[in-house]
Every structure is written in structure tokens, then in C-alpha cells.
Simulated scan of single mutants.
Amino acid sequence: MKIYGVVGWKNAGKTGLMERLVTEITGRGITVSTVKHAHHSFDVDHPGKDSHRHRVAGASEVLLSSRNRVALMQELRDQDEPTLDHLLTRLSPVDLVLVEGYKRDAHPKVEAHRSETGNPLIAPEDPTIRAIASDTALTMDRPVFDLNDTKSIADFILSEVGL
């Protein structure tokens, strides 16, 4: 599996870019999975549902399955957060895994940047960022794409990973 990341500060456009990239790349017949890093506690379960009740009761893992989807929830219960490398071993094989977040990991990335946030670019200090997708013109030592030019960004990523 090939891996490529999308990073950036909060409200930089990462999730929108990820969504558009998945649509663009899968539309070309390439299989894609995604990994999203959350910086906060999150819940995909709802109080009162059977799976939530199993988890709250102390189950380490709860596997939810139907004819439409399968979801596996794990409670870390004071264990260390799994590394990205470990999480990738849990995915079924696909052509490309797009990763949102994990900006400190060593995989290649594109940085999403919106000028209105006022945040500095991450790229100048991070050689793993191979390109920037921005809503403003930038002069950089690596490719800069319009944040909304999904086709060109997808072309760049696919070229980078050899797909």
C-alpha cells in the first residue's frame, strides 16, 4: 500500500481536501482508504446503543457488523496510542492510504493552508511536506497548488507514489 498525507493547522482545509481527493482518486479506479488522527476524545458510538453498552461495561474491543459495514472499536484503557505504522497494518489492502494528520510522521505529505487562519506554514521546517495546497499564491521551494485544484493535487500525489 502506498501512503500519502494531508496536514495543516486547524481550519486549513484538510478535511475538505481529503474528501475531494478520495472522490477524485477513486473515480480513476484506484482503491483508497483513509486514516484520520483526532487530537481529542471522540466517540463513534451513542449512549443507549448495544455497542456502547458493551464498551462501557468493559469490553476491550467491540465489533459491529451488518451487511453494509463493519466497525471495530477498541478501548485503549490507559494503553499508549497506537502508532500510524501499527494502524496501517490493520487496514485491508488498497492502492493508496490517505492520512489526515500525523504531521510529525515521516510519510510524504501535502500541506493544506488557508491564509485567513493566520497560521504559519509548516512546510519550511518539514522536508516530508512535498507540496502546499493554498488559497493564496506562495513562493516556495516545492510545488504550490490552488487549494481547490483537486485534479492537479491528485495528479501530483499519484505521481509521487507511482500510481
Rank of each mutant, 00 (worst) to 15 (best):
S66R: 12
M18S: 03
L138V: 09
G101L: 03
R114H: 11
A131R: 09
L88R: 01
H39S: 07
Q79K: 10
E24D: 09
V97S: 05
S115A: 15
V110D: 05
A71L: 08
S152H: 15
Y102C: 02
E75Y: 07
W9I: 02
P120C: 13
A133G: 08
I122D: 00
P108F: 07
A154H: 01
S33W: 07
L121T: 05
D50P: 02
V70Q: 06
D126F: 04
L91R: 09
V22M: 13
K151M: 13
D135L: 04
V56P: 05
S51C: 05
V110P: 02
A106M: 06
D135A: 06
E19A: 13
R67C: 01
M18G: 03
G5W: 03
D105A: 06
L147Y: 09
A12V: 05
G13W: 05
F145L: 10
D146F: 02
N68I: 13
L138P: 06
E160P: 02
I132P: 08
V35G: 10
V35K: 11
T83H: 07
V6R: 00
G162A: 12
L64V: 15
I132W: 03
G162C: 09
K36T: 10
Q79W: 00
N11K: 13
S60L: 06
A112Y: 04
S65T: 13
D141L: 08
R69Q: 14
A131V: 09
R69W: 12
L84D: 12
V144P: 01
M1F: 02
K10T: 09
S159C: 02
A133V: 06
G5V: 04
E100D: 07
T15F: 10
A112R: 00
V6D: 07
G118L: 12
M140N: 02
S66N: 10
R90T: 12
R67L: 11
A154Y: 03
V62D: 06
R77V: 04
G58S: 01
D126K: 08
D135T: 03
G118F: 12
D95F: 04
P93G: 11
P82S: 08
V7T: 15
L72R: 14
A133P: 08
P143K: 04
N11A: 11
H54D: 07
E24F: 10
L163P: 00
D50H: 09
A154P: 00
L91W: 14
D126Y: 03
A133M: 09
